[in-house]
């Protein structure tokens, strides 16, 4: 084994800590429940079992991370992730504020294409817009699915 591999792995330890926190939250939540049914198991039984399981797994993950035995991996390109998540957040914001399905789709499309290395934002916005209009016509108008409406969709 090479000496580098025995160094504690910070990401692994963070994951273990996250699991422990989830376990604690589930355990706490189980304590808030009323018994409900007088017979058999209560609603808190399964959460407690799962919380204990997660706690044990947190320890196991911690042990592995501490010994640094994690699969090797390279760092990812954070910029790409920011573009995609940004696109999704923009989509949610536009739909949430009543901007409608088509503009939201256009922006998500362009942002994702940008994350994959395209540098033609206006062209991609246009493509996304056309896809949005086409999908809206097909699914909302023709096949009667309900998609979020905005000013543009009301015109169609």
């Amino acid at each position: 084994m090479n000496p580098k591999a025995t160094k504690p792995d910070t990401a692994g330890i963070a994951i273990a800590a996250g699991l422990a926190v989830i376990a604690a939250v589930i355990w706490w939540d189980a304590g808030q429940l009323a018994q409900g049914s007088p017979y058999g198991l209560g609603p808190d039984a399964a959460p407690r079992v799962i919380a204990v399981g997660l706690a044990v797994l947190a320890l196991a993950n911690f042990a592995i991370a501490w010994r640094g035995r994690l699969p090797h991996r390279e760092a990812g390109d954070l910029g790409a992730i920011v573009w995609i998540i940004g696109g999704l957040v923009a989509l949610i914001a536009i739909i949430g504020l009543g901007g409608g399905f088509i503009p939201a789709t256009a922006i998500l499309f362009a942002a994702t294409a940008r994350a994959f290395g395209r540098r033609a934002l206006p062209a991609d916005l246009a493509i996304g817009f056309v896809i949005g209009v086409g999908a809206y016509l097909l699914f909302a108008k023709l096949l009667t699915l309900s998609l979020p409406m905005g000013p543009l969709e009301r015109l169609i």
């Binding site: 016509l137 108008k141 023709l142 009667t144 015109l155 169609i156």
Partner: peptide, 18 residues
């Protein structure tokens, strides 16, 4: 649906708002 279908198709072809 037929009416919607043909309205939608018609709209798509004419590209004119309703």
């Amino acid at each position: 649906v037929s009416r919607r279908l043909f309205t939608a198709l018609g709209l798509a072809l004419l590209a004119a708002p309703a």
